[in-house]
Each structure stands twice: as C-alpha cells, then as structure tokens.
Design a protein around this nucleic acid. Structure first.
Lengths: 252, 252
DNA sequence: CGCCGTCTTGATCTCGCTCAAACCCCGTGG
DNA sequence: CCACGGGGTTTGAGCGAGATCAAGACGGCG
C-alpha cells in the first residue's frame, strides 16, 4: 500500500531552478520571493551526482562552497593519524552541508557519499554577499550552523547512554528528519551500512545488529536489512528514555 | 621548590584594566594597540567572583554577554528531562565562554563554576560593534567558536575509545591548555571532582579512579587527589594512541 | 549458478559498571 | 592540640553488557 503515492516532494525534480525545486521550503530559499529566489538560483552551480564512496570535500580543504543535499545521503568523518576514524554525522536530503569550515575557512572533516547523491553547490563568497542583503538568508545560515552544534551535543549525550538507548535515539532522530521531508516517519530506508551506524554510535557492528534483532522481536521495529519500519513509536520512545522492558522470553 | 616563582602571569592581577591584565596575550585583546585596548577595556563589566557551584548562565537564557575566564574553572553541562546530564566541557583561565548562543541568540547549555572563579563579562552587542571595526577581534571571535566545534569533535572521537585512552587524552588536553597559560604542563591541579571527569568521559567514577591508580602504579603519573603530575609525557602519549602496555605485575 | 559483501547469529571473554565498604584529607569545634 | 565528622576518593568483589572471534545466512550481481 501507499506506493509513495502521497509524496508532496518529488525529490528528483527539475535540475536547475530553485523555483521548481521540491526542497525549496526546506533550504535557504525558504520564504524568499520570486525575485530573490532568482538571485539564489543564479548562485547554484552544477555538480554531477556523487557516486557511493565518492568524497565531496576533504578535511583541511579550503571552504569555497556549501552544499544543499538534494537527494541521497552523505556522512562526515574525522580521520585520525592511527587509521581509526569517527563518523560525526549523516546528511540527508534537504540538509545544508559544509558549514563546518565557517570559522577557520577550512573544512574540519571529510564528507563522503553513502549513496548516489545529488547536491546543490552554493559558492560561499557569493552566498555571503546574498546573506548580507537578505537577513532571512543570513538568519538561516546561522540557524544551520547552530543546529550542527546542537547535533554534536546530542550526539555527545547519546554516547553516554547504554547501547539500546543509543540505537533507539538514532532511529528516532532519523524518523524526525524524515518527517521534516514530509516522508513517512515510520518507514526508514537506512542509507548507511551497519558499520557506519556502529561507529557513529560508538559500538560494535554486532551490537547494532543485536539491538535491531531485539527490537524486532519485541515488535517495536520491523527490520529487514536496510529497511526499518517503526511499528511502535511509543515504545521506541520508551527505549530512548531508558525505560526498562520485559526480558525476551526464549520461546520453547 | 618552584614556589610558583617562575609564573609569567599573575592571574589575579589588577581588576579593571585589560592593559594590566596578565591574560591579555590570550584573550580578545591579543595584538591590539593601546587605543583599541582601551575600547575593549571600556566594554568589560564587573562581576563579583562566582562561588563554587554558582551558575553563570542557564540554558535558554538570552545571550547578552560573553565571558573571558580570568581565574578559576567552570563546566558547561547539558541537562536532560529525565534528570541525567552530560558535561560538555571545562573552561579554564584565558578561555572565552558563552559563545554557544551565537547562532540562536540563546545559550544552549548551563555553565557552572567549579571553583571560585573570576570572569570578565563582555556585553555581546557592544562586542559585535567592536568586532565590526576591528577585523582582528572579529577573527578571534570566529576562531573561538571554531575551537568549540573542534573540541566537540575531539570529545566525540574520545568517546569511541577504551577508558584508559579516554582519560589519557583528557589529561593531555588539560596539560596542553595549561601550557598555553605558560604554566608547567606537567603539574596539573584538577579543578573538577572525579564525578565530573567521569561524566565528561562517559564512564563511571570508579573507573576514572582505577585508571588514575593504574597510571600511577606504572609511573606515568603521580596522583594525589586533585594534584596530578605527569611524570612521563612520552608514555602518556602512548596510552592516548592505544599502545599496549605491560600487565601490572601484582608484586609478591 | 556461484561468488562476494553485508548482515546476522553464536560462543566466549573481558572491560567497565554496580554495589558496598574503607579511607583520607581537611575543616570544625571542643 | 586532638577528636570528630563529612565529602571526595579509593579499593574490593561480583556481575553483566558489550566486545571479539568465528562461522553461517542472506541477497545482489556477474
């Protein structure tokens, strides 16, 4: 049922016009009149879609462009000298990306596509000029950076929780972000492999699996590979808050 | 020996003049000529020292002021609905504080004094005006915010490590920050109780203790309550990078 | 049809948590 | 000066969540 029938946004819409873009209400263009929309429109450069695994920008790279994710998904990662790395976050459609270099002028981490992804590149200097003229754009830029900080703090707070809570919080976050796109918040299509989820949450891949399996058994989720349905938001919320739940009866 | 004799900075120096302040080379005043120094000077308000446990500002509070820590130490914490909390960071002398509200105009966390602490309050709107005139101040503000983001990312990366590494990284960070104040990087005076270190690092208080005890036994540290001497920076660095170390021989 | 990468499951072990008690330092008051 | 008390810290014992190692299942693709 619901063969993506009720989708308000057609994410892969016409390529080169903010006016036509389905994501407009979510991106910097939100609330602009058609004149200023054209100004923004002229800013947007074209960039061929990223292939899975392709790097959008590297750490230390000069920050010349910010990106709005049009479709697909990306991850940002901090890599350490010793070869280890930390997934800092995931970036989904409708989200602004690359503002991490705002302060130093250089990107602080690497961003890589998880899937084939389309982005709208916005040259930074031109965008700044536009922001100076349009307080609403300025405000949205600030808000976007602020959200990143907030996300980091939530991420940090998560890391202090036991594994079940962490995964539940992760899923709820994804669900909420999906709701903002007017997509079904109960039907998740995970863009990232278990390994990336595990790293992001600071736990082992196997633990992620087991937590999925458990919530599946409990009827909170229906998990099949990267397709995750949230069957019971109520109880998922319970897990987020660390509510104790009945032991899994080993039927037999 | 060295009865604080070689201290370049006298941290509790004269109260109301940036020109006289020992921290000048570290704060926003860095590199300003005497005229502009006076401008900054006129900005600084007076605030009586904070008592231990006193709150500097609350989450959600309007961001009217940023603060330079003159002496003492503070912590910023995110509190959750369920009563749990997460220590997000510690703020030592010479560090700028309160910029977390830069984006939304409201503070995103609560900041509380760990010890009796002195701060220089800088009214935000006046500071912004000054920053518009003085690119160097503007630049320093940006840098300061950028550092916070960077610190968050390092914090996140830490949370993925085993406990010994986490504590070692924490100590190394403190040591480096102390070095910036021209204080002995080997002689740490911890401003915070074990509980706060534990929370910050996402582990149990007892685990913090045991890791201290272990590094003490190994001769990497000399730990006595809140006085920690780093005896072997080399090996401390080793622990940071997760180098395996010989098992503790239960001497018999 | 068979291979390979991703995901899942099982068995085992260990790190770090929990609970609980002792300890130490330091300030207070006798 | 010393006894006392209390908060922060340390230590111990036991346990459990989660890591690790290793094998198997599933699904996609050539």
């Amino acid at each position: 049922m619901t063969q993506s029938q009720g989708n308000v946004f057609e994410l892969s819409a016409h390529r080169r016009s903010c006016g036509n873009c389905a994501l407009t209400p979510l991106c910097l263009a939100a609330g602009l009149d058609s004149t200023t929309l054209d100004q923004l429109d002229n800013l947007v450069e074209y960039r061929p879609p990223l292939a899975p695994g392709e790097t959008l920008f590297h750490r230390g790279e000069c920050m010349r462009t910010v990106y709005l994710v049009r479709s697909g998904a990306l991850k940002s990662i901090a890599e350490h000298e010793d070869g280890s790395y930390q997934v800092l976050g995931f970036h989904l459609a409708g989200e602004l990306l690359g503002l991490d270099g705002f302060f130093s002028g250089r990107h602080t981490c690497r961003v890589e596509a998880l899937q084939r992804s389309r982005v709208c590149p916005l040259p930074w200097d031109a965008l700044q000029l536009l922001a100076q003229q349009l307080p609403s754009v300025q405000h949205q830029l600030m808000t976007a950076i602020g959200h990143e900080t907030l996300a980091d703090h939530r991420h940090l707070a998560m890391m202090g929780c036991p594994a079940p809570r962490r995964l539940a919080m992760f899923l709820r976050d994804l669900s909420e972000r999906q709701a903002r796109l007017r997509l079904d918040p109960s039907e998740l299509r995970l863009a990232m492999p278990r390994e990336d989820i595990a790293n992001f949450l600071g736990m082992a891949e196997e633990t992620v699996c087991r937590q999925f399996t458990r919530m599946n058994a409990e009827g909170i989720l229906s998990v099949r590979r990267r397709t995750v349905q949230i069957l019971d938001h109520e109880r998922l919320g319970g897990v987020c808050h660390g509510q104790p739940r009945p032991a899994v009866a080993a039927s037999g």
